[in-house]
């Protein structure tokens, strides 16, 4: 599945990094501690987090992520969006909980 398909299926709002919407999703990861995500997130994953500050994009780039999904109604800072555009990694929004979204994505990828 590519990011665009996931966004359409689950009605996720695409806020930045549109250029990366055709990235392939190979898995997912949930976490808000950056070192933990940096150490364990798999390549090509979608990352579900509440962190919206610009440092999340360095983690996304270095881990070769497909997209970052801000959950729980959180939104990214303006410079986070700019970095997402520059790196071509989409930032998507989900108003509900990470648990709820992770379940849906997992079911979709299985």
């Amino acid at each position: 599945m590519i990011v665009k398909e996931l966004a359409e299926q689950l009605e996720l709002k695409v806020l930045a990094g549109e250029e990366g919407l055709d990235r392939e999703i190979k898995g997912g990861y949930c976490g808000d501690l950056l070192s933990e995500v940096m150490a364990k997130a798999p390549e090509g994953c979608v990352w579900l987090t509440v962190q919206g500050h610009q440092n999340i994009m360095a983690v996304a780039v270095l881990r070769d992520m497909s997209a970052v999904i801000l959950v729980g109604g959180h939104s990214p800072d303006e410079d986070t969006k700019q970095k997402a555009d520059k790196e071509g990694i989409p930032i998507l929004l989900w108003p509900g909980s990470a648990f709820d979204l992770a379940g849906r994505i997992y079911a979709g990828l299985a």
């Binding site: 501690l33 950056l34 070192s35 933990e36 995500v37 150490a39 987090t49 962190q51």
Partner: peptide
């Protein structure tokens, strides 16, 4: 609060 300070930095570096 920004998600830093998990105390995993240096251990991650050693492990990798």
């Amino acid at each position: 609060e920004m998600g830093f300070g998990a105390g995993m930095g240096l251990p991650n570096m050693k492990r990798n």
